[in-house]
Design a binder for these strands. Structure first.
Lengths: 352, 352
DNA sequence: TTGGCAATCTGTAACGTTTCAGTATATTGC
DNA sequence: GCAATATACTGAAACGTTACAGATTGCCAA
């Protein structure tokens, strides 16, 4: 049955949530006028406008989201689409906080739309678009030819990608410059006298895999070092697998004396594998690793570290989507984060 | 202006999203009948019901959330309320996935409602309740006398807490048995011959702080070991602070030979502090630590580890809220997760 | 005075759904 | 044969909002 209201409505000082009708009654104006006064429409008298806004603030009026959404189609929702198995753990937490920071003083809510490894990554996007569940979407694990980006571009729904695409289509993105990261990492290792380098790369298929590989390769030839192939694993693989493969690699005659690693958790496995093979970090081998939370230096002070700020990524992505929703040109909403210096907490010569 | 539809509506095979009206037109029935047929109302003929449901499935009908929400007040939203600074990182990621798993085949969406350290934790709850933004709420960092739980209980909005309260009020919760954890940890340390134990505890004020402290204290007297107070830090403090305080502590004449730590990141700092003081894990001191992702053993194989599964917590909490929304008794929606064994990857005597 | 025109304000309809209060038809009881 | 009663369906109203198409007023030019 209907939720019982007190008689006809209004004027009873019921504890109900105020609506435009309530405001209209209180100000003696029409609902339409109130609606327009609240959004600073031009054809409302200055005094009326102020009066309405004052009353609205006083009684704590909040527009009903369902009403707005039904009438206008605007959801005031940003959806963050995440893979429930393969995202980097700190990524999830930090990006959420980054997005939250930006949307905190907007009417937007953040909904998390998960999909699992077995699913087509397009599934959650289709769902969102078909049901009109969000005004904007943020996706990660971006591919050079990304079906999701293409799909959303076709339907005209604003989105931003974490990572770039290579489809010749323009859309907002935020990316970390993994080319620069890998290149700097190689230079840093070369500076430590390392000559045979291996790369623990991002998973094949994602755009930043090739960025990383290219930065690695280019800097390799620049410094005249050589590559020890290590493409049987990526940072997406399990800790155990990375560890055993690393140990295998390190027991070969020709083994790396330097690693570049694209993720902190993978680096733990890398180090474990190296030590399984009886070798020592900082003496037999150096590692430059990305990290997103400041913990790796506690793990092994010999690690060389480059920070990637996922909270910043979240903020940038949120700003980008909101910008697009607000009508800005998608091409103006792209940003690239430049890696900082390679940080050494303890030099491999033993000093601190 | 109004979103232009093709003429009057319907029968044009427009690419618009199907509504009840569309279904009504296609089946030749009234909107009301269609609505009821879809939700298996009793007064609809069996054949009609099947016919409507078939057509609905065929054309991919999805009820409009805004319509439902406006009419019924049901949002089909669960809100996860998180502190943007103080949550354990893996907690955020895992609990989201746990919740997602459970709500995946329901109409529910998950929204993340953040609040910052400086804010009153009640703020986001008030917002949710006042704006009717969610059918159910999940909160963490639960306190013995929790204003948020009390508030929601008063307003009759379904929620579940991660951690228990002690207000004599009954509500759904999921909790890890931190009393058992701390007690088992102490027994395990005592079994390794450790006699002077310190506790790196959860932050004072949260319910599980006292659970942990009590388990620690009770087991201490049970095994006849003594406590070295270490209450100047908790796992909420910064890595740096924990590290320096630990180092200070370990340089005292009377120092612990065993630690119980309630969080993995804090354990990293703990170990760093111990090693800063020139002591060695497994020889001078043992640590039993909780962890939520399987990484600590890579950090130091000497660590003694107890796992806490946050994904499970997320699932249980989601189940609890949904259960309450569905009309189950709040008292029947409480669960306690029992810690597993203390895991040793390498015995402190040096064997593996 | 009249007509025109800004400047303000207002009622109605519509978004998609569910609930209420029916209506129409067939079935039953007597 | 007729009323009572199930059974199966339906239109209208309402949730809160905004867009459209007026209303009403005052003021100014002619």
């Amino acid at each position: 049955m209907d939720k019982r209201r007190t008689e006809k409505n209004d004027e009873t000082s019921a504890k109900e949530r105020p609506t435009l009708k309530t405001l209209a009654f209180m100000t003696g104006l029409g609902v339409t006028t109130v609606s327009r006064a609240l959004k600073d429409a031009p054809e409302i008298g200055a005094e009326t406008r102020r009066r309405v806004q004052l009353v609205a603030k006083q009684i704590g009026y909040r527009p009903n989201r369902a009403g707005v959404r039904l009438r206008t189609g605007k959801t005031n929702v940003i959806s963050l689409v995440l893979n429930t198995e393969q995202e980097i753990m700190s990524f999830v937490s930090d990006i959420i906080y980054g997005v939250s920071e930006v949307i905190a003083d907007t009417p937007y809510h953040l909904i998390v739309t998960p999909y699992s490894r077995s699913q087509d990554p397009l599934d959650p996007i289709r769902y969102l678009v078909e049901t009109g569940s969000a005004d904007g979407v943020i996706i990660s694990r971006t591919q050079p030819n990304d079906a999701r980006a293409r799909y959303m571009l076709e339907r005209g729904i604003p989105f931003a990608t974490h990572g770039r695409t290579e489809m010749g289509l323009v859309h907002p993105y935020h990316d970390f410059d993994n080319y620069a990261f890998a290149a700097e990492a190689v230079r840093s290792l070369a500076g430590n006298g390392r000559r045979r380098l291996a790369l623990l790369s991002p998973p094949v298929g994602l755009t930043y895999h090739s960025h990383t590989v290219n930065g690695f390769a280019d800097a390799l030839s620049e410094v005249g070092a050589s590559e020890i192939p290590f493409s049987t694993v990526s940072i997406d693989h399990s800790i155990e697998r990375i560890r055993t493969r690393t140990a295998q690699l390190m027991r070969r005659d020709i083994r790396p004396d330097g690693f570049v690693s694209s993720a902190a958790a993978a680096t733990l496995a890398l180090v474990a594998g190296i030590e399984d093979a009886g070798l020592k970090l900082g003496r037999d081998v150096d590692i430059v690793s990305k990290q997103s939370s400041d913990l790796l230096h506690l793990f092994r002070p010999e690690l060389l570290i480059v920070n990637e700020n996922f909270r910043l990524a979240g903020s940038e992505l949120a700003r980008a989507v909101l910008g697009w929703i607000g009508g800005a040109a998608p091409g103006s909403l792209q940003s690239l984060s430049v890696p900082g210096e390679v940080l050494a907490y303890r030099r491999s010569d033993g000093s601190s």
